[in-house]
Design a protein around this nucleic acid. Structure first.
Length: 271
DNA sequence: ATGGTCGCCGAGCGA
């Protein structure tokens, strides 16, 4: 079965529900994973998604901050929520598709919102950066995030790290900027390698090519300097990697009215 | 140029 999914840090799902609807009407992924929904579950715009044909929704929201959601045309068999760093932050939700979605073999999907980490790239001075590093270590150690054998697992989200040189507009100028410091890049890549995950973007786009999914709000004209970073990721397990048929970044979405600072990232694969 | 802009809510924090 051909399966498509999108990850998008929406930076308030209620404020940008019309943009989400516009995206879903045009791209129609089977599953949409959102981060930074910024609302409690009771305030989530369920009906709008259901009208758009996305009837299966798994939520892990909290008031004002963070929040992740999986919005799907296909029914789930199970959903799960994990916590990290002994905090109750809503930064993870996973769903599994199986019999209800008429899949012969299960498909597990993890949706993450990794802590941004504040401004100062020193864990001794900045507790938010310390939290980010610990979160990445816990992701690496987390047993359910280690697909084995022919497990069909996908991990997506705003991982808040641009791990490779061409995942940022200037490797040199961002070496001391949180999101591209060596320590967090190493930790993210260690989690990726330890789980035997494959980075779909870099399977499809050469390492020599610049790739971004986020542009700061603080630039006068985001297109002019094009100072982006690749913070949003789609990883797949070994069993899925050869079935990937498409990968796209909806860069245009950064120029929509009242946009998120992140754009949708979509992969299509055989499952 | 060491700022700048967002969204949460209703001041200041987090990104």
């Amino acid at each position: 079965m051909r399966f498509s999914l999108t990850t998008w840090n929406i930076n308030s799902v209620r404020l940008r529900i019309d943009l989400v609807a516009k995206f879903l009407k045009s791209v129609r992924p089977d599953v949409l994973c959102l981060q930074e929904t910024k609302c409690i579950d009771d305030a989530f715009p369920l009906k709008r998604f259901k009208r758009l044909g996305y009837e299966h929704i798994a939520l892990n929201g909290q008031k004002g901050y963070h929040g992740v959601a999986v919005i799907s045309k296909l029914p789930f068999d199970n959903t799960d929520i994990r916590t990290f760093c002994d905090k109750i932050d809503s930064r993870h939700i996973s769903v599994s598709f199986g019999e209800k979605a008429q899949l012969a073999k299960p498909l597990v999907l993890h949706n993450f919102y990794v802590p941004a980490g504040g401004d100062i790239p020193d864990p001794a001075l900045n507790p938010k950066f310390e939290h980010k590093l610990q979160f990445l270590d816990e992701m690496k150690a987390c047993e359910p995030l280690h697909p084995r054998g022919d497990d069909r697992h996908i991990l997506v989200g705003d991982l808040n790290v641009a791990p490779h040189e061409n995942d940022v507009w200037s490797h040199k100028q961002l070496l001391k900027v949180v999101s591209h410091t060596p320590i967090e890049c190493e930790k993210l890549l260690a989690a990726q390698a330890h789980g035997e995950w494959f980075d779909v973007a870099r399977m499809r786009i050469p390492m020599s090519e610049k790739v971004y999914t986020w542009w700061s709000y603080r630039a006068a004209d985001w297109t002019l300097a094009d100072r982006g970073r690749r913070l949003d990721h789609i990883w797949v397990s070994r069993a899925l990697k050869d079935g990937v048929s498409d990968f796209r970044i909806t860069r245009d979405a950064r120029g929509w009215e009242r946009p998120s600072d992140h754009v949708p990232v979509t992969a299509t694969l055989e499952v």
